[in-house]
């Protein structure tokens, strides 16, 4: 099993692509850093008592900073390394959850729409049309706006992560639904699906056991690309001041805070989280591109 995996085409191509390998290393490092942030970070950036204003605005080590703070501190005296690790943790959590919700919802609807066709398909696709007329950022902003109107402020604060996740997920499901549906249309006329239908297998079994494994390639690509979109979307919403607040900063919030220092000399407060975010998203997108090439060799 393992031997075959190592000899398989994707793995072979992976080890021939320096870009994909580099991206995978960066992604794994960031993922590991985010997962183990509580153990790696010297301070807890959410705990105001763990840092002091006395350490505020210290530059990175190589610019003559304090040895305790490798990448310097912000105006509150927060260690930048700790801030970006915890920020990435929050960004990735929201991104992954949103991607998971969007893929389950989108793939489910897309599978069913493609399989059953007819009226159900028409309804799902019209909803997708409406969703397309209201692009991702707009949908996310709108859901956030509605939740502000509907929920009392205190609860809204508590549910921020959930609302943000849902908002991002709802703006991304269409991608999954359209891709899944298009693939199902191709697959369902193939003989192996027809054979299962002739046998009288349950539609759920046909969809999940027969069709789904055969359309995983394109879905995997969308998952990767949409994880990148979800992280960007979260950062954008936080940047617009609508996502997460300053006391639990995600990468986007950190960048928004850093914007205040654009004109003063403390460049690291802005550029450290910015570069970290860009490196993370670039590496995910490189991997997505690699997967796309693997699953669609004609473009190679």
């Amino acid at each position: 099993m393992l031997a075959r995996l190592i000899k398989s085409e994707p793995v072979y191509l992976f080890f021939r692509s320096p870009a994909a390998m580099l991206a995978a290393i960066v992604a794994i490092l960031v993922l590991g850093g985010a997962a183990f942030a509580p153990f790696l970070a010297s301070t807890d950036p959410y705990d105001l008592s763990s840092f002091s204003l006395m350490d505020g605005l210290l530059p990175p080590l190589w610019e003559g900073g304090d040895p305790r703070f490798l990448l310097g501190t912000d105006d509150q005296g927060r260690d930048m390394v700790s801030a970006i690790l915890f920020g990435a943790r929050l960004s990735l959590t929201i991104g992954l959850m949103a991607m998971a919700v969007a893929s389950v919802l989108g793939v489910g609807l897309g599978l069913a729409a493609g399989y059953f066709g007819g009226r159900f398909d028409a309804i799902v696709m019209r909803i997708a049309d409406i969703q397309l007329a209201l692009p991702a950022i707009l949908t996310a902003l709108l859901i956030d706006g509605i939740s502000r109107g509907v929920l009392p402020p205190a609860i809204h604060q508590d549910l921020r992560v959930a609302v943000l996740t849902l908002a991002i997920a709802l703006s991304l499901w269409v991608n999954f639904a359209r891709t899944a549906r298009a693939s199902v249309f191709v697959e369902r006329n193939k003989d192996y699906v027809q054979a299962a239908m002739i046998m009288g297998q349950h539609p759920l079994r046909v969809m999940l056991r027969h069709i789904l494994p055969n359309i995983m390639g394109p879905l995997l690509v969308i998952m990767t690309v949409d994880l990148a979109s979800a992280i960007l979307l979260e950062a954008t919403l936080s940047f617009l001041g609508i996502g997460l607040p300053a006391d639990s900063p995600s990468l986007g919030t950190l960048i928004r805070i850093g914007m205040q220092f654009l004109l003063s000399g403390e460049w690291w407060i802005l550029w450290v989280p910015t570069l970290f975010l860009v490196a993370l998203v670039v590496s995910i997108n490189v991997l997505g591109d690699f997967l796309r090439d693997v699953f669609n060799p004609r473009l190679r």
């Binding site: 193939k190 003989d191 192996y192 027809q194 054979a195 002739i198 027969h210 494994p213 055969n214």
Partner: peptide, 13 residues
């Protein structure tokens, strides 16, 4: 039933 195209009548996965 036996189908025309043996490349598509067996589930590749």
């Amino acid at each position: 039933m036996v189908f025309q195209d043996p490349y598509s009548s067996l589930n590749g996965r």
